[in-house]
């Protein structure tokens, strides 16, 4: 492993809005992702996971967002201070995204072939047989009869298929860092497993690093090397996956893991996090 990590985030702070009613979405977080490493980011809804992910290549609309402090070093270069021209080639080619909302991230007026082909042409101009590459990409994410599906528009696909098209598009660029924001929410476990295997394979072959945002602890256990737990804009716990899952230190992490429903252990009610309780625990 090399000395400088691929990605290093230092004291990153992001606000929405100004003055009194500003939301402090991210409050000074630091973490690193090494070459070829998979880091999972977990945490409740609204804890700042997506905001952190989008900020890596400055995709947040400013305003309302504001980068209040910190730096994001990708290969040693601070993306927060790069110009638009320097940043653009980085998006897609170096850092590719799978966005959280598949339905709204695909363009409704183009076929899926067109959209994936565009990504390939843009980032891998050396590919000759673009159509074949598109078919291969769709096949890799488990879409049946990919040739027949090329001409489909996004609304003709099921939710899970749209999500897989997004994944195919991001992976077709062979990025250095893949930022996957809840990539498998609409997928059943078998496809989920297939996607995770695919990620693992690409990671091995291309040396890709992955930042994986998810609610699914099964996936975390399956693929992540390290876990970062976010709570209200802070990182409250960080460590090796096995350590964090088996022996969570922070009360919030413990509560979160407790909520996971398990097969074959039928309870009358599912456990949910009681926020008052966490709050009480957090008070010294």
């Amino acid at each position: 492993m090399c000395a400088t990590p691929l990605l290093e985030v230092r004291n990153l702070a992001i606000d929405f809005g100004r003055g009194e009613n500003a939301t402090h979405a991210v409050k000074g977080i630091s973490f690193t992702i090494a070459d070829g490493e998979t880091v999972a980011v977990v945490g409740e809804s609204g804890s700042g996971k997506s905001v952190t992910a989008l900020s890596l290549t400055r995709l947040l609309p400013t305003p309302p967002a504001r980068y209040v402090g910190g730096e994001i070093l990708f290969n040693g270069r601070n993306t927060l201070t790069l110009s638009g021209d320097e940043l653009r080639p980085m998006r897609g080619k170096q850092i590719a995204y799978i966005f959280q909302e598949p339905g709204t991230s695909l363009n409704p007026v183009f076929t899926i072939e067109f959209q994936i082909a565009e990504a390939i042409r843009l980032h891998r101009p050396e590919v000759k047989d673009v159509r074949g590459e598109v078919v291969r990409a769709l096949d890799l994410v488990g879409i049946r009869d990919p040739e027949k599906r090329l001409g489909d528009y996004p609304h003709q696909l099921s939710g899970g298929m749209q999500q897989r098209v997004m994944i195919a598009m991001a992976l077709a660029c062979h990025p250095k860092l893949l930022v996957a924001d809840e990539p498998t929410t609409a997928l059943d476990v078998t496809i989920q497993k297939q996607i995770m295997d695919l990620l693992r394979e690409l990671k091995g072959r291309l040396g890709m690093s992955i930042m994986l945002i998810t609610h699914n602890f099964g996936i975390v256990a399956d693929i992540a090397d390290r876990v970062v737990v976010m709570f209200r804009g802070h990182i409250v716990e960080e460590g090796k996956t096995a350590d964090v899952l088996r022996n969570p230190q922070h009360p919030y992490t413990r509560a979160l893991i407790d909520c996971v429903p398990r097969l074959g252990q039928k309870q009358r009610r599912l456990k949910a996090i009681d926020h008052a309780e966490i709050e009480a625990l957090l008070k010294p």
């Binding site: 339905g103 709204t104 363009n107 409704p108 007026v109 528009y153 996004p154 609304h155």
Partner: peptide
Amino acid sequence: RGLTLSLRNR
């Protein structure tokens, strides 16, 4: 039409 198509399936 394009925008409607995208909204239509929301």
